[in-house]
Simulated scan of single mutants.
Amino acid sequence: MGTGNQSLGTEFTLLDLFQHGRMNTLLFVVIAILFLVALMGNIILVHLIRVDTRLHTPMYFLLCQLSAIDMMYISTTVPKMETNFLSNSKAISFLGCEVQTFVFLTLGATEALLLGFMSYDRYVAICHPLRYPVLMTKKTCWLMVMCAWSSGSVNALVHTLYVFQLPFCRSRLIKHFFCEVPSLMPLVCQDTSQYEYTVLLSGLIILLLPFMAILASYARVLTVVFQMSSGVGQMKAVSTCSSHLVVASLFYTTTLSTYTRPHYLHSPDQDNILAVFYTIVTPLLNPFIYSLRNKEVLGAMKRLLG
């Protein structure tokens, strides 16, 4: 991480998400429950995929990776937010903010790319079923995962190193409940318009391109599905793909809205609401959408419970 900024050693102040008077405690409890449910849901899904040999397929291997990312993703922001509420301290150190930004960007970009690879898996399985064992080998799956992690890490490292060497000479109040690049831009006392084009470009490559690929692949999948003679096959394919599409749409639309707008169009309230969706709601929904609508996962759970 960069240490050249003269602000090193100072603290930032995070804006508390709980800003509703008497509702503070209730919101704190709700967020804590959602956090625990998200963790438990993802842990159970990962455990089912690991112990049930019937789920040892490329689709569930990628889903297992997604659940692991979601557990780390939601743990990057919520515990700090909850701790701040309990301690009445909204401070985060310069280094802590830098680390949180890097980890958050890495996990977010990795998930965005992984969701795109998962749509390719479904496309091959439905549109080219005979070639599926050849195209989706174990090696291919590991290459997808490594590509997602390495690309996400490099992207996060570049942005984090650049942002935290900028001079933060304005208010130390980050109008957000965690450290994120768009929320840090208003604190910089030099022109960041050129850098914002870089953020926009990164957003288009890492977020928009995978999302467009998902939409294109599923458009092709739906065309093939509705040509099937088997109603059961149609329902199974549509169920699997619709689950993925719901999760992907929620994740991509909220993150794109945050990372493709100039900082002067951001408002703290709007950014907080959008962030709740892609930091809490999406990791919460992922395991349930993929499990409750999936007969194979439900079957694995029944077998595990005897």
Rank of each mutant, 00 (worst) to 15 (best):
V246S: 12
L222A: 14
L256R: 01
T254N: 13
L245W: 00
L222I: 05
H266W: 06
V238I: 14
M228Y: 11
A237R: 02
S267C: 01
D271T: 03
T253M: 02
L274Q: 08
M228S: 13
T253I: 11
S229I: 06
T279C: 10
P268S: 08
S257K: 06
S249H: 00
T279P: 00
T240S: 09
Y252T: 02
D271Y: 07
S267Y: 09
V281W: 02
Q270R: 12
P262G: 09
F226R: 04
R261Q: 09
T240V: 06
S242D: 05
I273M: 13
S239Y: 07
V276I: 13
T258C: 14
H266G: 09
Q227T: 06
V238W: 04
I273Q: 12
T282C: 07
F277C: 08
G231A: 08
A275D: 07
S230A: 01
L274E: 02
V232G: 05
M235G: 03
Q270N: 13
V281L: 14
Y264T: 12
D271E: 11
T260I: 05
T255S: 13
T240D: 14
Q270H: 12
S267F: 04
M228N: 08
L245G: 00
Y259S: 00
S229N: 09
H263R: 09
Q227G: 10
T260V: 03
L245N: 00
F226P: 02
C241L: 01
F251E: 01
V224L: 04
Y259K: 03
P262I: 02
V281C: 08
L265S: 15
D269N: 08
L250K: 01
G233E: 05
T253P: 03
L284C: 08
S239P: 08
A275G: 11
G231T: 04
L274R: 12
L245K: 01
Q234A: 02
P268L: 04
I280N: 00
V276P: 08
F277T: 03
V225P: 08
Y264D: 10
S249G: 06
L245E: 03
A248C: 10
L284G: 03
V232F: 05
V247K: 00
M235H: 14
Y259N: 06
F277G: 00
D269M: 12
L256D: 00
V247A: 05
S230I: 05
S249E: 01
L284S: 05
A237G: 10
F277N: 12
L222H: 09
F251N: 04
T282P: 03
V225I: 10
T258Y: 15
H244P: 10
